[in-house]
């Protein structure tokens, strides 16, 4: 408990320092609970998520960093490896491939990489996975783009 708190505090200070360094990621610690974080990440360019801003919720276990944090999308996203309803993410480093040397910041980076490179073979969102697997890239992209516009872009006017 103390170890995880100390480690999170270090990450917190690092984030404060690096805020400008990575303009695509904005990590925010909950005001009253250092084990709850949120992040805003920018959709990577040249993907259907470009232009969108996606919110992630982190729940950090007491055994952190020996155990991985739990992360999910709060913003709706159409992606084969993200559950459309719950926002749950299927990503190996959040499960068996976790390493205690990862940080919340590096998890965000891994999620951005996942947005750019979906893994249609382990889908949490079957509709989206099937579109990609059947080779209908255009169909997938238009759906993903539509949801980006609907859910991840600031409302105009």
């Amino acid at each position: 408990m103390q170890a995880s708190r100390a480690r999170l505090f270090k990450e917190y200070k690092e984030v404060q320092r690096e805020k400008v360094a990575d303009p695509d990621i904005q990590l925010v610690c909950d005001d009253s609970n250092i084990f709850k974080w949120t992040a805003l990440i920018k959709g990577p360019s040249e993907t259907p998520y470009e232009g969108g801003v996606f919110q992630l919720a982190f729940s950090v276990p007491e055994q952190y960093p020996l155990q991985p944090p739990q992360v999910r999308f709060l913003t709706k996203i159409f992606h084969p490896n993200v559950h459309f309803k719950t926002g749950e993410i299927c990503l190996d480093i959040l499960k068996n491939a976790w390493s205690p040397a990862w940080t919340l910041q590096s998890v965000c980076r891994a999620i951005i990489a996942l947005m750019a490179h979906p893994e249609p073979d382990s889908p949490l969102n079957c509709d989206s996975g099937n579109l990609l697997r059947s080779g209908d890239v255009r169909g997938f992209q238009s759906m993903a783009k539509m949801y980006t516009r609907l859910a991840a872009m600031p409302k105009k006017g």
């Binding site: 170890a3 100390a6 480690r7 270090k10 990450e11 960093p65 205690p100 040397a101």
Partner: peptide, 8 residues
């Protein structure tokens, strides 16, 4: 040295 896990 800085520990790669606890960053201490």
């Amino acid at each position: 040295l800085t520990c790669g896990i606890c960053f201490d």
